[in-house]
Design a protein around this nucleic acid. Sequence first.
DNA 1: CTGGCCCAGTTTGTGCACAATCTGGAGTGC
DNA 2: GCACTCCAGATTGTGCACAAACTGGGCCAG
Lengths: 250, 250
Amino acid sequence: MTTAAPAKPARRTPVPRNAARNSAESRIVRSIGEAIADRRLPPGTKLTEESLAEAFGVSRERVRKVLLLLAQRRVVTLIPNRGAFVAKPTAKEAREVFEARRVIERAIMERLERLPRPLPDDMLEKLRDHGALEDAAERAADRKAMIRLSGQFHLLLAEVAGNATLTGILADLIDRSGLAIAAFERRSSHTCSADDHRRLIAALIGNRPGEAMTLMIEHLDEVERQLDLEAKTDTRIDLKAIFANEPEPA
Amino acid sequence: MTTAAPAKPARRTPVPRNAARNSAESRIVRSIGEAIADRRLPPGTKLTEESLAEAFGVSRERVRKVLLLLAQRRVVTLIPNRGAFVAKPTAKEAREVFEARRVIERAIMERLERLPRPLPDDMLEKLRDHGALEDAAERAADRKAMIRLSGQFHLLLAEVAGNATLTGILADLIDRSGLAIAAFERRSSHTCSADDHRRLIAALIGNRPGEAMTLMIEHLDEVERQLDLEAKTDTRIDLKAIFANEPEPA
DNA sequence: CTGGCCCAGTTTGTGCACAATCTGGAGTGC
DNA sequence: GCACTCCAGATTGTGCACAAACTGGGCCAG
């Protein structure tokens, strides 16, 4: 399952051409990020360097670099001499992340309101295309696709709004809120309803930006409200993570 | 010059105790970050791995790790096979960063407004202490200290507001806006006036939160207004950096 | 039986050597 | 004289080997 061929020479991969170097790296980041987002890697999961290296067919150093990147984005927690774990946000952090999202996304909706009307065709097309994808995923009951598309929807709005810096910040927050949802969701909740997105798209396309703003705020509140932030999670890993994050008294 | 003693054993430093490992790393990050903030390392400066390794007395791998972290925070730009450079933001990016700061800091001021009054004593003390430090730096005409304290002031407000996630986001934005200021400041401008901060502290301590909000927004606008964002900067490095950032057509 | 200690195995951390790539300049043909 | 090619030096990228540290279980004393 790990390595298809028992022969070792496959391990020797001195990078024939370097064109794929940077993309291989970000490919792994995306791959792990998506696996975390759609719950294949639940919070607290140990991410052993060697296992990941085998899984992606790269060297351990590459994995180490990727883990450092993910740690910087707070998606994984790096504990010195212990290894990497899928981050397990505390209730406090979850609330903070959602508040930050409200702050950023409110700003994005304000930006969308200020865009010259009517919106350009390619923008409308992107929105409609995305809506179609979400509809399809919902009809197919493809939960993983729905989760991924839900995040992409918010990111798409940020891109359309045109501030790449805010978009980058939001990308991180979306990953982290996915983590928070994974850690605190109630049994049998439906996370991000595609219907909210549908109405939002309709409001934007129909030139009703004020309504879109209201919908977005209600949408984010609704997602957070579906979480059980009072639930006491398994504190064992939390304690270690917390103390490992601030090991320096100076 | 490279190694003080011609004898080789000094080079062998297998980390006697690991307690200082993580802190050494973040110490270098802070050190480089401050050097960039107070213009000792202007935008575009080449950061050779070996030079930094010598300067900080650590191995090249450690420096590489630090540069990766700084690159993630957009403070340095990493160009494949070319090396690391102090980031040189474009005018567009500078505007975006300042807009993002307005968004985040407006949210922080709203949070401060909602804090229960009167504010706790330790909070007031922190604000007063900081004000005293800024006054002292201004009297001493210590430009470097003023720049550093100015950033710390905004960060202090974020900490007091109590959302660590927003604080983390703002920390990055402050570093990047420092970079933007370094790249676009007009000759003979006074960056962040300590007087604005003084009035802000007074408004907060004096329980006039609405006034504080207004002051903050005006303050940020003023800082951005002092920049010459129309100036065409040297595009040679920009082109390379831009094309290196998005090398993947897929 | 309980608690502490120690040891073996596994995982992470780091220095190092070498490979790949880029830069700038000299050399050569048209 | 101009442009193109090629080479030497320097810098970055990567695999690898070994060292350090942690984990879990067995062992021994009380």
